[in-house]
């Protein structure tokens, strides 16, 4: 009986959805609204309106700058939620996970240590150069965060956390949000609108520093948040 009801509900719900799909313009058709209005505008006017060589950066940091600011806030809030759930003090039981029974292999340790500088160089390149090539602050930051996780796995969380002491970490976690606020308010004071970047005039030299600062903020914040979530879930604090 319940199965039949579920099935009937599913079919009932799928009918309007399928009908809506049938109303969509065909995939890849030239008359789709995305191809006739938004995308041509971005592609044709983007470089002049924003001064960005890479159209993806133009969309992420200029046209949709507010969205990106909201996204980094969401990620930071997610970290707060993880802390809120996992760092509740539990007096009855000690939450610390026992160390793994398997000692770390020297081979793995050596390889991670050898590759670490390359990984750092790659992600810094992504963060700094993100406004003119694929990639950017978030991708580069996540790669550094993954490196921190790998280091925690082979060297132990305690030793890795010494790279980012508690006091430093607490300031790096909201780095993206803070950097957006700083750059946004500076733009507001200088040019009248929140998060506005100069594309001409005497302040033009500020454009690249602004974009780079935001990218660095997103990268550093992303790295700190990714690593902190891992440490919080693993039970050695964030």
């Amino acid at each position: 009986m319940r199965r039949a009801l579920t099935l009937a509900l599913l079919i009932l719900a799928s009918v309007p959805l399928l009908y809506a799909v049938s109303l969509l313009p065909p995939v890849g058709s030239e008359d789709n609204p995305t191809y006739t209005y938004v995308v041509p505008h971005y592609l044709e006017e983007g470089p002049e309106e924003t001064g960005c060589e890479n159209i993806v950066t133009a969309v992420i940091l200029n046209y949709r700058g507010f969205d990106t600011g909201g996204e980094v806030t969401v990620i930071f809030t997610a970290l707060m939620a993880v802390f809120g759930v996992l760092l509740i003090p539990r007096p009855a039981e000690k939450v610390r996970q026992p160390e793994s029974a398997v000692p770390v292999s020297p081979v793995t340790l050596f390889i991670v240590r050898t590759l670490a500088p390359f990984i750092v160089v790659f992600s810094v390149y992504q963060i700094i150069n993100g406004h003119s090539t694929p990639g950017g602050g978030f991708q580069g930051g996540t790669i550094i965060g993954a490196l921190l996780i790998a280091a925690s796995l082979v060297m132990g969380s305690e030793r890795t956390q010494r790279l980012l002491p508690e006091g430093v970490r607490r300031w790096l976690q909201p780095a993206a949000v803070l950097m957006f606020a700083v750059v946004g308010v500076t733009g507001m004071l200088l040019f009248g609108e929140y998060l506005s970047y100069p594309i001409e005039g005497e302040y033009l030299f500020l454009r690249v520093p602004f974009l780079t600062l935001v990218e660095i903020g997103i990268g550093v914040g992303g790295a700190a948040i990714v690593a902190s979530i891992f440490w919080a879930m693993e039970g050695s604090d964030g």
Partner: peptide
């Protein structure tokens, strides 16, 4: 470098 390490 990485693939043999992963196997190991």
């Amino acid at each position: 470098l990485t693939s043999p390490t992963a196997g190991h």
